[in-house]
Design a protein around this nucleic acid. Structure first.
Lengths: 342, 342
DNA sequence: AAAATCATCGGAAACGTTTCCGAAAACGGT
DNA sequence: ACCGTTTTCGGAAACGTTTCCGATGATTTT
């Protein structure tokens, strides 16, 4: 467990500590031969610079922190993988913490990460809370922070967003084109900006195609399958089922499909169901689920690159990157009566 | 960005640096009043000890590293959450790296983590490779390492395992009791010890119930849905379909179900399908998938606790924890002709 | 040949803690 | 009033780097 230090290497070669340091850091003021000699014997001695000492000396931790609501589902996992790819290749290590969809936990996580002196932070907030004030204050004090996902476009900081309104619109329009007449949107929690964006997209499509008000509805759901199940349950009880459901995410869609089937209803023959934020199960489910695929990996990479720039070059004009998705039509929203499937 | 240091606090109160340190570290040799005074003014000045400096001084990084094959699927995500819960509450930060089911990548990850001087390592190997020699050598040199999952019971180091053989046996026996006569096991890669354990369990059940050799088969699959699909495809082509499939994991089971359905076969009426390592989709799929639930969260916690002990108390007798699961019977393996569903 | 430049290196401060060692102060007992 | 403890504290070394500053000798310029 005894580590060989820079001193050991220096002593062995009868050179100074500074020379060894210079050799390892590619400095100009060292002769080529001595540098090579140093590197060679250091290699032989199994010397690796102690990262902690380097960090102390350089006043950088080469750690960055990520706070996400959760990473059990694929969405944030994939984003994290994208982030890691960028940072690890730049010599950083990534600390991941989850807020469990809880604003207090989120704030606590951010504070631990700051106390651990991470060089930068990526925050995917669970919801708009007054935490944002704290985060923004840190950002304005010069702490490098980049936001991701559930924040408003007006936020005065760099961020990477998905164009929820647009793709919600496209998804809804697809349902309309498939000639589903009565369409219900099961939204996410309404205190999430993404939920509202998708509601906006839904309503915009309704408006454009002049669907009468009694033929559509927005019902507040949540994030999980059980929310979809509960809502369908309720609608069955009220005898108020639509032709098509457009769900906030795939998980809710799976819940909806399950509950419909257990009531003897077929998807899509009786009722169509559309998801959002595509999961790998969309293809494997019966029926295969139509959904909107978000470019998770790319979102992670872009976010990481923004933060890296912020760390290296200091604060400049905040940048907002809005990414596009992909509407993947599958069995669950195909109306057999419609031949033109555009 | 200018941090207040221990010196600033000391100077302000005209005490020594050591006293401030003592106050923060709950040392005995400091008067209660001065300690409180120091803590109060430190608080006022917004002083937090610099963790990097602490780490350098204490020769500990308070970082631990985890290497997993992947964390897109729920299995490792949940394990990681269990690990984090233990370590974060003990003041550690957790560095997570994924090997992408690639042994070289895995080794590289372990080496980066060691170079980053993590205080301990949790390795969930992708497969038995000669990496194990390297890991064991580090372990024997005194580096705290705990293994998880895909390792053999004979490995001379602390580890947390799932009793794959036992639960594979139970799962298979359930299929036999449901009077499925011809049962095929789609295994995982045969260079994984877990695959072999589950094969053993499968064969043991066949043996116990004296199933004739021509009525069962072990087919090497993999880890993903597409492997299940490909195998079913092949069996259909060869006209060699069984009454029931027992799959290495849920993902393969979903692939199997999908491919069977697209051939007009019903699950479970025509063919039953059983998964393993239960996912949240098992309940939501149609039909609901029978599977074996692994105690992922607990596995994470146990692993973390083993490592924590290893770090704190040094190497003792290696400990092996083998955890039990839960056989969850659902629609996909219920034979309507059988009334006694035990 | 003197002066200026350049390449190469060593010494030491600095980064911000913890901790060892010893000293001063307070205290109790005789 | 003296001595031995105990309590409380300060000084300084140590952790392992990076980097600034200056020194030395070699090389080039005038």
């Amino acid at each position: 467990m005894k580590h060989t230090t820079i001193k050991d290497v220096a002593k062995r070669l009868n050179v100074s500590i500074s020379s060894v340091s210079r050799a390892f850091n590619d400095k100009y003021d060292i002769k080529k031969e001595t540098k090579e000699l140093i590197l060679k014997t250091a290699e032989e001695m199994g010397y690796h610079p102690n990262p902690i000492a380097q960090k102390l000396s350089q006043k950088k931790t080469f750690n960055i922190g990520i706070v996400v609501p959760e990473f059990v589902n694929e969405y944030y996992s994939e984003i994290i993988i994208g982030i890691q790819e960028v940072f690890i290749s730049h010599g950083y290590q990534v600390l991941i913490m989850q807020s469990d969809e809880n604003a207090d936990q989120e704030l606590a996580n951010v504070k631990t990460l700051i106390n651990n002196m991470v060089d930068g932070l990526i925050i995917a907030p669970t919801m708009e809370s007054n935490n944002m004030n704290f985060y923004l204050k840190q950002y304005q004090k010069g702490y490098p922070i980049v936001f991701m996902g559930r924040v408003e476009e007006s936020l005065p900081a760099s961020k990477v967003l998905f164009d929820n309104k647009k793709w919600s619109f496209f998804a809804t329009e697809h349902l309309i084109r498939q000639q589903y007449k009565k369409i219900y949107h099961l939204s996410g929690y309404k205190n999430l900006s993404v939920s509202n964006d998708r509601i906006q997209g839904f309503l915009k499509a309704m408006d454009k195609h002049k669907i009468p008000k009694e033929n559509y509805k927005v019902i507040e759901g949540g994030l999980m399958a059980k929310h979809g199940i509960a809502i369908v349950e309720d609608l069955i009880y009220k005898n108020d089922l639509p032709d098509a459901f457009f769900c906030f995410n795939d998980l809710m869609a799976f819940g909806v499909i399950k509950r419909l089937k257990s009531n003897g209803l077929r998807v899509p023959e009786d009722i169509a169901v559309m998801g959002f934020t595509e999961t790998q199960m969309a293809e494997l489910n019966t029926p295969q689920l139509s959904s909107v695929k978000q470019p998770t990996f790319e979102m992670g990479k872009k976010t990481a690159e923004l933060l890296l720039k912020l760390i290296d070059k200091g604060p400049e004009q905040p940048e907002t990157i809005i990414l596009n998705g992909e509407l993947n039509i599958r069995e669950s929203t195909l109306n057999e009566k419609v031949t033109d499937n555009t």
